[in-house]
């Protein structure tokens, strides 16, 4: 993947927001790839976690926001506990989701979930899904 990096592509506001919401210093990332290596969801992601980290570092907002990676992340924390730099990637993923959710855009629409699916779900599935995927 070739990506262009310049003053024009760097979205400072985006970087600041992710820093602020996540509370993490993701610039410490040294691109070792441990996160991607241990991610149980990686095969379903369009951009691996390691790349999300570098893209975020370079302020490439559109690429990060339009990726489905943060939405596929199940917050299992496998990456966070293994990161040799001590970055909690799950918090970075949360910040990326929040940037969309806080515009009142839902990833899952509660009212659109079918009654059959609702019927069988344990409450914690609903609560956690709404927490992660609705604004």
């Amino acid at each position: 993947m070739t990506i262009e990096i310049s003053d024009k592509t760097y979205d400072e506001e985006f970087v600041k927001k992710v820093e602020e919401i996540s509370g993490e210093n993701f610039h410490k990332c040294m691109q070792c790839g441990t996160c991607s290596g241990g991610c149980p969801m990686i095969e379903h992601m369009d951009i691996p976690p390691r790349q999300i980290m570098i893209l975020t570092h370079f302020g490439l907002k559109d690429k990060v926001i339009s990726s489905k990676t943060a939405w596929i992340c199940a917050t299992c924390n496998a990456c966070s506990v293994r990161c040799p730099r001590g970055i909690e990637l799950t918090k970075v993923m949360e910040a990326i989701r929040q940037l969309t959710l806080r515009k009142n855009i839902n990833y899952v629409e509660p009212s659109a979930i079918s009654e059959e699916i609702m019927a069988g779900l344990p409450q914690i599935a609903l609560v956690s899904c709404f927490r992660k995927h609705t604004s």
């Binding site: 149980p40 969801m41 379903h44 199940a74 299992c76 990833y107 899952v108 699916i117 599935a125 899904c129």
Partner: peptide
């Protein structure tokens, strides 16, 4: 200690089932 896909079973059921299968 792998993840069972958690709440993804609701948002992305196919991915959830794959994870469970493994």
């Amino acid at each position: 200690t792998d993840c069972c896909s958690s709440y993804q079973i609701l948002s992305n059921p196919d991915i959830g089932i794959e994870t469970v299968s493994k």
